[in-house]
Amino acid sequence: MKPAPFTYCRPDNVEQVLDLLRQHGGDSRILAGGQTLMAMLNMRLVEPKILVDISMMEALRFIRVADNYLEIGAAVIQADLLAWTDLEQYAPLMAKALPWVGHAQTRNKGTVCGSIAHSDPSSEMPLCLALLGGEIVLRSKTNRRMVKAADFQIGTLTTARQEDELIEAIRIPVPADVSKFAFQEVAIRHGDFALVAVAASHSPDGIRLGVGGVADRPEVRHWEHLPEDEIDTALNDLAHELGGYDDIHASAGYRRELVRTIGKRVILEVMA
């Protein structure tokens, strides 16, 4: 299928983007990598009047470390972040999770912030951001605010972004040196939507586990102490708490089994 007609705009700077968003609000869509939005346009799941292309905007293509946060701009392509030589040092979890995001061919175009904007419940980047306690930098013509990942993703494909706001960047706290991270997922085919994705961290304040693909957004649990013989019970409780759903790919029961199985793997990996 083909997109419905729209006006295509490629602003020269962020101010012009914000002007367009203020003027057109919900009739507009930001086009960054387009690896989800273009598919949605082709299927006419969305029919914006104005498409605002920020993919070539150098001002939004930054990866920088400031105030103990890693900031990733809205035009940063997933493949470029994966290829960034300092990624392992500043965001080891992202380094583990990015190879699971789509396929190499879509990572060459898709953006990190685009994944966050789309907020698919099974998507890897929102899961990582939720586990790491990251923030989303939202900018409008009149305001600039930061929203915690936990407050940003409200539900399936639904976020706290206002219609006149641009996701300018995401911010991830740089972890303590001693922290350990692990990531796993199960999909029908590598690169497809995850049936279940899990991320775990082990830092001085305890163990965290994030689960994607089961509830309507990534869910994170924190244990200050988690003895090895209590992992199974904790994960079983979590799996039933999240519930899960049946679809053509997997039953809710299978999703819960994945939470127990790969959840345990990543927890043992970060505890080792």
Binding site: Y8, G34, Q35, M38, A39, N42, D53, S55, M56, A79, A104, Q105, T106, N108, K109
Partner: peptide, 19 residues
């Protein structure tokens, strides 16, 4: 529809001609 743009393989169906 995979082609190479500036040396990288990408989906040509997920990009606009004007881009």
């Amino acid at each position: 529809c995979t082609i190479q743009i500036d040396g990288r393989p990408v989906r040509s169906c997920l990009m606009l001609a004007v881009q």
